[in-house]
Design a protein around this nucleic acid. Sequence first.
RNA 1: GGCGAGGUGGCCAAGUGGUAAGGCAGGGCUCUGCAAAAGCUCUAUCGCGGGUUCGAUUCCCGCCCUCGCCUCCA
Length: 474
Amino acid sequence: MDLQIYDTETRKLQTVSPMDGDTFRFYCCGPTVYGPAHIGNFRTFVLQDVFRRVIEATGLKTRHVRNLTDVDDKTIRESQNEGVSLKDFTDQWRDKFHADCEALGLLSPAVEPSAVEHIPEQIELIADLVEKGYAYQADDGSVYFDVSSFPKYGRLSRLSEREITTDTAPSEGERESSDEYDRDSAADFALWKAYRDEDGPNFWESPWGKGRPGWHIECSAMAMKHLGKSFDLHSGGVDLIFPHHENEIAQSEASTGQTFARLWFHVTHLMVDGAKMAKSLGNLYTLEDLAEKGFTAEELRYTLISAHYRQPLNFTLESMSASKKAIGRLRDFRDKLGLSAEAAPAPTATVDELGPFQPVLKAATADLNTPEALGQLFTVIKQLSRQLDEGALAGEELAVAQKGFLAVQYALGLALAEPEKAAAPQEVVDLAQQRWEAKQAKDWAAADSLRDQVTAAGWQIKDAPDGFELLPLS
RNA sequence: GGCGAGGUGGCCAAGUGGUAAGGCAGGGCUCUGCAAAAGCUCUAUCGCGGGUUCGAUUCCCGCCCUCGCCUCCA
């Protein structure tokens, strides 16, 4: 089973296979660590994770590189505002990002390079571009990439330089500020930014004086260092298509003369309550915000994969509730299959090992159609559940089903962890215990009365043949 | 204005040239002392108007509406 993915550049489905015949090498644009990542950022990261998991589930080896942007306007500005060093500032948010990723079940990338740790590589790349005539130092001291020197510029986003320079209608204020630039063309972009006073202590020495690298150059330098001059796939949110990825292609290919990334995979933006997510609209959620509303990271993951990645996904709290219930049903089925939360989901190399769950992975390999995969999953579960009820699933057949389920869990990254069991107050436990005893004594009136008291206290009794369980009333 | 994505049941969301997966919510049933939980089950003709076709939600044309990108936002 091969994964097909929609390639932004050719605008066609392409088969994912390693160009070196061995390992699929791909790069994901990581976060700028200047604050907590929000659910929109995570839509991209979760889908990149599913992408990797599905490739691995089909038996391919991967080399996944995802960077950390820890030097740019925002990180420098915010660290200055807080009066801490750039490193301390970005380390803090990097750690937070890692904790969030773990909660979401994201596999760690093979390499997670940081921009500040690759300054020499970036300077080297810029120097090469200057030497080859693709870049120039302007009067302001900054070094710019000369877009006109690279004819293929715009092939990814299908924007021509002409459109960039003439069809954009800046406001009066913007027009004035753009006049301040010393670039030869409005389309040219900075490779090296000359030092400004507001950068404080954050600068590096270079052949063009002190300053710092531009944003785009870091990804080119780090991707090529850790994946080679030419690799299989590059990805990020749709907003990165232009200018970020367009610029990466220009820088990299102008320097090496080779194809930078063979395929481009972009995830569509998330909407919240029908509107673009933005700080100014107050509809920007972090994992903490969701936790406060009683939702887990896994429930967010489920919500994020419940829509196709090239489709706008409208995030709502209602969709989170639906995810919570759906995950609960998957968990019930997992238990019914005789598996537990401890059983480790594992990738699978052969179609046979998927058993009845084959349609699920098949859907996932069709341009990462995660909603279809989830649909198939529930369809299969319904069938197997019936077989289990009839005692018709046992022995070898059951073992195959268990293995298949774990493979699907791996591919979708659903841990199905047992929910945190909130402990009921002692008085509620006591009431429930008394009610259980009354029930055993078949004193229904007393039992019902006690249950009403438990309910009034905000707890729900879930009876089993051998005892009861208390669940918070939601 | 340029480029792009999309409009499917109450909500969310797949899909197909031959009358539409799945999840949530709601109804019914089973189980249960009664409940809860769980399981089973029921509910759509696919934005509007044309065209092509034996037949279109699926292909083509037009229209309406929503959304994204157009220089540092995943």
